[in-house]
Design a protein around this nucleic acid. Sequence first.
DNA 1: TTATCAAATCGAACCGGTTCGATAAAGCCT
DNA 2: AGGCTTTATCGAACCGGTTCGATTTGATAA
Lengths: 335, 335
Amino acid sequence: MATIRDVAKLADVSVSTVSLALSNPARVSQKTLEKIRQAIAAVGFVADPLAQSLARGRSRMIGFIVGNVGNPFFGDIRRELENYALDHQHFVVVTDSSGKTDRERAMVEHLIGLKTAGLALAPSGHDRDYIDFIAGLNLPIVCFDQKVAGIERDFVGSDNYLAGAMLTEHLLQLGHRRIAVITGPSHMHTATERYRGFADTMANAGVDINPNFVVDGQFTRTAGYEAAMRLLIQPERPTAILGTNNAVALSTLQAMQELGFRCPEDISLAMIDNVQWSSVITPRITMVVQDTLALGGIIARRLMHRITNPQGAVEPPQDFVLTPKFVPGNSCRRI
Amino acid sequence: MATIRDVAKLADVSVSTVSLALSNPARVSQKTLEKIRQAIAAVGFVADPLAQSLARGRSRMIGFIVGNVGNPFFGDIRRELENYALDHQHFVVVTDSSGKTDRERAMVEHLIGLKTAGLALAPSGHDRDYIDFIAGLNLPIVCFDQKVAGIERDFVGSDNYLAGAMLTEHLLQLGHRRIAVITGPSHMHTATERYRGFADTMANAGVDINPNFVVDGQFTRTAGYEAAMRLLIQPERPTAILGTNNAVALSTLQAMQELGFRCPEDISLAMIDNVQWSSVITPRITMVVQDTLALGGIIARRLMHRITNPQGAVEPPQDFVLTPKFVPGNSCRRI
DNA sequence: TTATCAAATCGAACCGGTTCGATAAAGCCT
DNA sequence: AGGCTTTATCGAACCGGTTCGATTTGATAA
């Protein structure tokens, strides 16, 4: 591999001039610029990113940290960020924390060690320790998906309250009153907001919520399945179920199928968030989906803005909350 | 951030001794080892991975390059690799080429620039140029999924011929004769092998293949959908369709639903590869799945072996081919 | 006591760039 | 021509580690 010294030697200039020519060509005369250009081509020089990062104290990498890269929601965002970053000479390093806070922390620390230019982070933690950790980081960070109280950073996400409210309203409109909800972890902002949207809408309609109809699905497949089962074996069953994320909703569908309940004939089902291949799942589930492409675009722009703009670092954090979209399916029937 | 020189100063030893103590404690006396240990703790020293990589000419990172990180197949493999690598003090950098050869190349070059210790690569290319590029790389590489003729590297994958043969045999057993197949790109090893398995099994059973029943689905959603449509609008329809990957098979199911064909009553469907939430898709599709966890484990072990073992680099490349598993569903009926 | 050898430690060069103050060259004005 | 800027280039220090040959220390043997 050719180094900058090889180039300098061949072009008969100093190393620092070559470096300058590369980083700020305007300050170098046309004549030497041309000599250097030729020398670079002749030896096939490519700057070593590692050496650059070490000297600059900053790399051209962006860290992307989520709990599950396989989740298409994160996948879409990743793609948008990657495209945008690539257009701006930055490289995205994707890491998966599997939703574990300690692992996420290890990964963030590793990324910091790599002197990444910035971080796009879907936070997995929520306690004091975690918040302090994030707060203590001294580099551009854009958080997304989970809004964590106490983290003073840019945040990009969807209106989860509205998501819960929209589907609840839809079910009420169809005549449902015995509506059950499968919730997510209470420490997650998305979970509490979606539930709030549900509860407020029910209250506004003057419909009481049956306490037995509120079960915790932890946003996971297994817990969601168990939660659904608990709902379905009750003597007085709900006429409709709202799954507050895709995992619990689809687990519910599975549970219903296994117990011989038809959807929507016996029980209606609505879900928040999309899922791959939702179009071939029978019935097509009525859902509220997030605009992942828009979210990804905003995250990318905001992060690159903070990275490339010198004064971007001191701009106060800002929240970007997008409106989710209602996508009707045929999993909810009128009663 | 504390540097190694801070530690050396505090412990009153030379910088090189500190470095030695860290990399090979046995060569340092107990006394100084202890002094250094305390100094490290006192200043909170953590070695800068960038500086280490630059000096060593090698980092503790492993590159993982696939065409679609969202694909659960790759997701499972990634997880296995990540766990194993983390246990061995290595960090996995995930990159997504979106299946584009030039993008993959750019990413590989970037990873090389990062002086990654090794690469786990699902190759996306197949032409001379690409093969030469991969062959020219001078670091441990384990290829997986696609076996590319001409690439002399370790390879980990499944017996795709068998996968095609198993499902074909299954359909034949059920009495099907008019079996259609939706194939993948002819330059992909998995695609050709799966088709070979189909064709040979048909031939062995003495069943002629209707040329109209062989359509190209490109392993993609859109092309698969179109291919399925071409099959389904023929006056003489197949009684069973073999989708040679999940995208084309599920697109076929979608096309069938849209045209009002019931599965399996009107047409049976079998597919190669799994998909997330397959258990809630109606009907549950009969499929042959790869043992992703085992694949990931082998990839991880093989790669780390080559990385950590000095003589591992010169070991001749080896192929690891696993047997896929038949998973019965209810998408194929006896006729 | 001194020669011998292994173990422990050190110094300096190196990895491949960046940065900034100093110097040299060129341009402008009186 | 002399003084004053501006522009172009350079040298050296630096980023934070590793590596290896050289030197010092300590123990053992003669």
